[in-house]
Design a protein around this nucleic acid. Structure first.
Lengths: 151, 151
DNA sequence: TTGCGTGCAAAGGTTTTGCATGGCA
DNA sequence: TGCCATGCAAAACCTTTGCACGCAA
């Protein structure tokens, strides 16, 4: 069983990609953005390599893949210890459909949701995969102003 | 205001598309699936037309556009009266990441979530855009069996 | 007849794949 | 040296757009 493990090489490209993701751990980055950023750093990495590494990092649990509701481009976010542990049951994401900000929500109260839905509706919610879409406080303020002036 | 309304023509293609969506109102269908189905019915519709009609139907509020977390292909679902009304604040969706079933969840309890998040975290959740991902009861049972036999 | 809707083809973007080469261990 | 990783190019998808033609009203 132990002989089945494949050797992994340490390459410049892999290091570059992981570094950028770590430095931007508070954001989610697209493959295109990642490639572009590495070009600007003087260490360009091919698209194929970027996608292959992202796929691997995701499989290793170091980064997490998301899909925006916008255009069909995926994005990734460095998960660090959280992603490695994989035991973050009370952690949800809030994504503002207006400005795109991604808010990490650690709240005990929300564990009630998963428990309620599981017990009363027989569905096990996976917080790691679930994102709430809506308006952040800043954008909600803008919308009210806009609606008021529209009418 | 009334003179601004554009004339809309009734075409075979539009009827076919809407019919298929209505017949499959319990599911979400991709553009590709829709096209393929119409070919099999002997009434093929071009891709451009499919996307243009879906865009229009969405703007009219008759169907709703979703984005799966899988590949970058969107999907649509006929919303009927619910989508038309657009006042379904306590309605969330549960999507099983295993079998793909989409469950509509009308539950008073969940309005508490939106209220809590809005009051304590300053974020207005839009239930219509939010989907909970996880495991349905049937697939949850399968997984347990699988995990038990894996170890 | 008018002009909206359609189909075809081409373009745009994201992601994947094949293959020869480069580089880590 | 052996084998994995990379880069390039091409392909595979999904979706959008331009343009001429067809068809509903």
């Amino acid at each position: 069983m132990t002989g089945n493990r494949k050797n992994e090489y340490q390459t410049k490209q892999k290091t570059q990609i992981l570094s950028y993701l770590e430095e931007n751990a508070t954001r989610h980055v697209t493959a295109g953005e990642l490639m572009h950023a590495l070009v600007e750093r003087g260490t360009p990495v091919g698209a194929a390599t970027v996608y292959r590494q992202l796929e691997r990092l995701e499989a290793q649990g170091l980064v997490r893949r998301y899909t925006l509701d916008d255009r069909g481009s995926a994005c990734w976010q460095y998960g660090g210890a959280e992603a490695k542990a994989g035991t973050c049951h009370s952690h949800f994401h809030l994504k503002c459909v207006c400005c795109g900000i991604l808010i990490h929500l650690d709240c005990e109260h929300l564990t009630e949701i998963t428990e309620h839905v599981e017990q009363d509706h027989g569905f096990q919610i996976d917080p790691a995969r679930t994102t709430f879409y809506g308006l952040c406080d800043r954008c909600a303020g803008k919308q009210e102003v806009q609606n008021a002036s529209d009418k």
